[in-house]
Nucleic acid binder design. Structure first.
Lengths: 88, 88
DNA sequence: ATTATTTATCGTTAATTGACGATGAACGAT
DNA sequence: ATCGTTCATCGTCAATTAACGATAAATAAT
């Protein structure tokens, strides 16, 4: 992982809502956008934007299935990220 | 550590230059602002600002000694941070 | 006392972010 | 074929960020 890639992940996690989204995704394994919208006091478009940022960082991936999109944490990227922090 | 504190650290590390500063601080243990300025192609005020953000996140601390300020990584905070990532 | 060194802060600028509502696209169900 | 559901994207706005040069504050050295 380059410093730029790491910075992107750090930046993506640099917002309380996005941290909580990732924590939730790890617990629940996978879920759709609407479910996340119900948890937070923000609009659908705001949550969708947060998910986009998380996806672009690589820490989260989304799989389209019909009108829904299933989001989950990319375990490989998470593990690489964990490894970096460990050796930091 | 609250989610807000974690977000502040993630955010602080969400910039390539600040990641590199922290990596450098870990290697060198402690150093002054001017030394960091010499490493990066940015002005003194920019580096000082990056150091301020790192300090405010808690991951870095600065000790004033005369006209100089010695910066170092707060090992306790780093360890708490590592622990969070591990249990994530 | 003056000067040099070191760092922090101020003011500015362009760019980015975080939030929203509105709209559009894709699909499922009727 | 139409309607409802789900999500992404667009446009907007206020706030924040990242960079800079200039300046100020604190100390060390002459």
């Amino acid at each position: 992982m380059t410093t730029e890639q790491l910075a992107k992940i750090f930046k993506a996690l640099g917002h309380p809502t996005r941290i909580k989204i990732v924590e939730h995704l790890i617990h629940i394994n996978t879920c759709v956008c609407g479910e996340i919208v119900n948890i937070f006091p923000f609009s659908q478009s705001t949550i969708s934007q947060h998910l986009k940022i998380l996806k672009e960082s690589g820490i989260v991936c989304g799989e389209v299935d019909g009108p829904k999109t299933y989001f989950c944490v990319d375990k490989s990227v998470l593990e690489q990220f964990r490894q970096y922090i460990k050796t930091l």
